[in-house]
Design a protein around this nucleic acid. Structure first.
Lengths: 236, 236
DNA sequence: TCGTTCTTTGACCTGCGGTCAATCAATACG
DNA sequence: CGTATTGATTGACCGCAGGTCAAAGAACGA
């Protein structure tokens, strides 16, 4: 993936009505689906285009007719996977009512289930974030900035409107901290490759999990929460 | 890099005194040094073993005599680079005296210079963390957990002994939060020098670096600092 | 000086991303 | 319907880079 390139091959010939040909579109979709599985299961470099083609019963060359390169195919797969993630604000009304930090806890508690239900999407997200080339990583990042797939902007907005977040921090700083720590916390929780020893050092994951989530939410509350949501009285 | 493997080729025949042959050892070192530069400049996949060999004036085959594989070579290069980083506690006594959070600020303020002076080490650190395969990433993580190259354990210990850190959080959790946020914050600060566009820019960045560091330290203080170091009075 | 052991070499192999001329399928047109 | 035109599909082929290995060379010990 060199510089700013489209990951798709020839910009899909359009019909007069401006829509891409339906057959092509469908096939592209099928390729991406299989690709997601392969990249998720084997990682970027170990996944082979030939295998993907074979599983679809088509020739390897065909894949490259639809996607410029392996990088490009991966990128499309990554995008599709990430777009399937739920946004922070997509929670039951009952949870939303309880405010920012309960919402946070809600999602953390559900991480494991969500991953189980959508394993390859989550896995390819990991592969994209930690297991590809830096050039590709840059492209991915551009995408993440533009799309905000978790919807943390709205989330932070929500918290501020409710007065649960510090008003002396700008939205970006708050959001960045949230993103950084949430990502890493979830990664550590879910993948042995990235656990610095929080969940797997002593005893099995499920037992440590609850306590860790509690600790973590409290941490975030202290860091970015407004005075009114501090549970522990501080100095003075 | 498959499973638990040594990255070195044949476990270096030892002499009777238990030390590796000096010639071999020296050569290995030279290879690693050149490798660091190449991986740093081009990223993992774009770096070619042949080029590294060529620059050393040796045959490609020779490299594989010393390192099991390209992965293995990279891993050694990564380790060497990371080991060259200064530990948190390696600061002037005058700074140490001022305590945990001043020490934090000290290092943040110095990041820029440190990176300039040791560019390829930081760059290969980035490549290792975000730009290689997940299999390799697992190895890297193991190394980071075992070696604690930044010495954050001692650092956290230091803060606890001085009573500046919350005592209701265990060392692992405190340390992880510290690591995660420090890593990313530094990445954000250094983005321009290391790899423009690699990380999400926090919106309208051009805020003074000083100010952002200030904000950040304050954030961390709130999150993991004990009551006695809270600068802002809270509720009650 | 001669054998033994370690090191170096570079020709060679392999696997995989990527290309392309030839072929096939579908649609448009007379 | 038959034929032309256009786009989709194929699979043989290429090049590149990681990795191997038998043979040659260097260093060392007796």
């Amino acid at each position: 993936m060199e510089g700013i390139t489209t990951s798709l091959a020839k910009p899909t010939r359009l019909r007069r009505d401006g829509k891409p040909r339906p057959r092509s579109e469908a096939k592209r979709g099928r390729i991406v689906e299989v690709a997601i599985r392969h990249f998720a299961e084997r990682g970027y470099s170990a996944a082979r285009v030939e295998d993907i083609a074979a599983q679809l019963g088509i020739a390897k060359g065909s894949v490259f007719q639809h996607f410029k390169s392996k990088d490009g195919l991966f990128f499309e797969a990554y995008k599709k996977a990430v777009q399937s993630f739920p946004k922070y604000m997509q929670a039951p009304a009952a949870v939303l009512e309880q405010g920012f930090f309960e919402l946070l806890r809600y999602w953390l508690a559900r991480t494991e289930n969500m991953v189980r239900d959508n394993w390859s999407a989550y896995r390819i997200y990991l592969v994209g974030n930690y297991g590809t080339d830096l050039a590709l990583r840059r492209e991915i990042n551009r995408f993440l900035v533009a799309e905000d797939p978790y919807g943390w902007r709205d989330f932070v907005d929500f918290g501020r409107k409710r007065g649960e977040l510090r008003s002396d921090l700008d939205v970006d700083m708050t959001g960045s901290i949230l993103e950084w720590t949430m990502d890493r916390f979830q990664d550590a929780l879910l993948t042995e490759e990235l656990d610095p020893g929080l969940f797997r050092k002593s005893g099995p994951v499920p037992q440590e999990k609850e306590a860790r989530i509690e600790q973590f939410v409290e941490l975030i509350r202290r860091a970015i929460g407004s005075d009114k949501v501090q549970t522990v009285a501080r100095k003075h």
